[in-house]
Each structure stands twice: as structure tokens, then as C-alpha cells.
Write a protein that binds this DNA or RNA. Sequence first.
RNA 1: CGGGACGUAGCUCAGCUUGGCUAGAGCACCGGCUUUGGGAGCCGGGGGUCGCAGGUUCGAAUCCUGUCGUCCCGACCA
Length: 505
Amino acid sequence: MAKAKKTGITPTREADYPEWYQQVIKAADLAELSPVRGCMVVKPWGWAIWENMQRVLDGKFKETGHENAYFPLFIPMSYLEKEAEHVEGFAKECAVVTHHRLEPDPNGGLRPAGKLEEPLIVRPTSETIIGEMYARWVQSYRDLPILINQWANVVRWELRPRMFLRTAEFLWQEGHTAHADEAEAREETLRMLHVYADFAENYMAMPVIRGEKTAGERFPGAVSTLTIEAMMQDRKALQAGTSHFLGQNFSRAQGIKFQNQSGEEEFAWTTSWGVSTRLIGALIMTHSDDDGLVLPPRLAPAHVVILPIYRNDDERSGVLDYCQRLKNELEAKTYSGDAVRVRLDDRDLRGGEKNWQHIKRGVPLRAEVGPRDIENDAVFLARRDTGEKQGIGRGQFIESVGDILGEIQDGLFQRALELRQENTRTIDDLQEFREYFTPENADAPGIHGGFALCHFVDGDPVVEEEIKKLKVTVRCIPLEGDGQAGKCLFTGKPSAGRAVFAKAY
RNA sequence: CGGGACGUAGCUCAGCUUGGCUAGAGCACCGGCUUUGGGAGCCGGGGGUCGCAGGUUCGAAUCCUGUCGUCCCGACCA
């Protein structure tokens, strides 16, 4: 009897994309909302993905000459006031600590006491506190460059949280560097953008566009903001990482000064760059399908899950022995420089239910092993990315496991790249632009639009108004543009190059 | 911070219009038996001060007032 095809996730992406996203997180047991407004609890499976991301990125930061350090969670309010644009950018979303003690109140509860002389803000980002320290550390050109990264949590009091994409508290890394000259600082900004792009494409299997933000989208206080932008499966853009050239704005505000070789006093040139747990959201929306999470092998907490199948206690011990041996043999193999990560799921659950759990959690390979397979010295192997299932000899499986994982990794990247290519258009006609970004049914806007490459004039009010109406934003001016000049789509004024326009998260 | 909706079991919700026996269902959970190669079936069981505080009433999940919270749509944002 053929059963009706049932998806692991309800609703499907097509039916209700935002709800699908929430359900994937739930079904894959990645995280859940906490009782604290806007803050989430990252559960072990989600955390393991983050740990893998951290491990890879941390290695890349160290390879590029950076060291880790740690700076305080609290920042004196006055620090934030020093850089005017910076204040404006973050003031509206800061958590503020005004007291340092609790005392009993008359109703049997507690109330804050011990008012602080100067309020402390919980860092929304650490440029100011880190800059303050750099100012103390730098006297001579010989003290530069300073190349430091920190792994930390930050707080931005968001009004509308979405798991992983925008939460009040989130985890990230922030690199902060100070240099003796502009060229070196600009080079650093670009270098780290490429580190991010490499990580996104080769580890997350997520193609990205490297580009520069327009003035309006720039980091508050930065001279230039570089970004990597990815397309999610609903064709919206997600900013996946940023690298900022801060010029001398922050060093002037914070007094990061040094004497150069001629004995003259100069301000240092600084940069900052970061990626956050938002990358997990990006990962989910890039690869997952209507059955749940799909993980690129390089970041998957488990590459292979072995599912023993048996009917009774007699079969049980034999099957488990065989599985344990298979696990050991697989773990002796490597993929992408690491030992193959294998889990043996011998929980006392029904096979079907167990199997679905691993599908929903996105494990790249599931190997079912039952008496029948053992007889043939084989396993029944299922791929999460294609859904393909086949019997394969045990020896062959062990020999090829690394290759199969590599195939999955590459396949996911190709699939994501194709989606982006199919949904990227060069547009030179305003009417076409409007239609491209207008959903067929305004009351239930389904998946529509994509990336549009258009000529434009940065900051022109006519442009701003038009794209705002359509809820479209300028994502970036690609670094690898065609370099052709043209006419602004909206105003007809001369344009030096095309930018990527899209709806965004 | 503006507009809308909603708070009933761990989760999703019914019941409320028209107040009335012991507050229900599905899923999840626990136990037993039969099962086990893509989400098992049957039987039994545990679990709720109906968000909170007042009020009306012989009687409130249901009506009234207040309050707290959550979600959605805007504005803001990694």
C-alpha cells in the first residue's frame, strides 16, 4: 500500500516560509525561545553546529595572525557617546544597567537599589571599550598592528526577534585591529571579508556575494563596510558577515595615537569585523527542505548515524556488535581533515520514528544495519541531501565515506548556487523592477523576487523612496562587478556600476 | 512606540455567543500486550488553581473592569 507522501515539516516552504523556518528549528532540536523575551536557548544539536563554526573560523583567524582576548560585557555610557554616528546607530537598542543591588520591597518582592553614578550599557558591540584599551596600549608605531579577536555575547534590544536571525542576545566573534597606515587597515578589512566568504562557501556550502555597503547601510561610524550577502530559499537576502574599515573615526574619538618613525603623532587606522549565530539561520535557510534540516558535512555534528535494526534480543547483540565495529572502522577514516564523526543510535525506539528524527536533524548519511545486511556484509545507506537510498558493501562504504561526504558538500553548494543564479536578474527597466518585487497576492505574499542587478545613484531620495515602497534594499555593490557605467534605473542620472537589490532579513 | 489578534494539560486547540453536573480532544508522556527495514496498533494510566487581580451572581473558563504576557502587521536592526 502506497502511503500518501508525508513531509517531515508542516507547513512546507512553499506554503509558509517563515513558519517552516520555525518548525525546522523545532524539529531539528536546535534551539527554543526562552522565558526571557527575545532570548533563545541553544540546544545541544544547535550548539554543536556553532562549535564547529567556531572551530573553523577561529583557526582561520589565527592563520591570518590574530589572537583571542576578552573585554568586559559592560561599557560605561560615556564611552558610547564619544563617536557621534556610533551613538545614533546603537542608542535605541541598548540594555542599560542602572543599579547594582537588590533590596526587599514592602510587597515581599525585590527592588533595585544602589544606583550607579554612571549607567553601564550591555555591549551591543565592543568598538568603544576595546578602543579605550588600545589607546592605552599604543604609543609607538612599533606597537602596531594590534590584531585581536574576541568570542562574546552581545545584546541589542530588538523589537521583533526571530530565532538565530535576530535575537536580543546573540553570540558572535568581533575582530578589532589597529594599524599604522590606511592601506594596511584597508587590506585587513578585505582580507577578513575573504575569510568570511571562504568559510561561507567552502564550509557552509553557501554561495555569497562580496560587496560594499552603500552609505545608508554602513556600520555606524565606519568609513566603509564590506559584506557577504547570501540568497535564502525564499529568495530574500541575508547579510552573513561584515568587515568594517573604520578609518580614523574611532581612533580620534578614543585617542588611539602613536608616534611614527619621524616622531610625529598620528591616529591609528582601525577595523572591525564579525559574524554571529545568525550564520546558523543562514545555514538552515540555505539547505533545509520540507523534511527538515539539511547539514553540509563539514559542519555537521555527526556525518553518519548508524541505525541498528533487530527484532529480538538474539538479533540485538549481534547487530549491535556489527554496528559498533562499523562505527570504529568509519571513525578511523577522515573527511576534510577530521576523523569521520559517527553516532550509533541504539536507543530503544521504533525504527521509523528514529529514522525520521535523524532526517529532521539533517545528518548527512544514515546507515541502517539489520540481520539481512549483516548476512551480505553490507549496509543500507540513505543520503539526506538527495534522499537517495542504496545497499552498499561494508568495505566499500568505509572506503568511500569521505568521497560521499565530499559529494554531498559540493552538491549542496551547487544547488544553492543554481538557486541564486536562477533568481538573479539584470534589470534596466523600472516597470520590470517593480513587477519583479511585487507579490502576486499582496495579502499573502508568497515566495517571489530575488536579486536584481541595477544601476543606481547612492543616497538619491528618488531611489530611496521607490525601493522603500517595494520593501527592497540595496544589499551591496559587488566587488566583482562588471565595471560598466550606465544610467540610474530610477533617476536616469549617470551610474558608475550596478548594485544588488533584494528584499532582506 | 502605533494597528490587530490571542492567553484553557508539556504542545496544538475545542468549549465562551445564550453562566449550571466531575472542563474536553489530538499529539506527547507512563504501564501492559502485539509489533519493528520510512512517523505502529489495542487496552489502561498520570497530568489543568481555564494568565493574574478584582467585580457581578445562588453559581464564572464563560459576563464586566483592571493588569501582565505572547504572537502578527508596521517603524528599527547582524
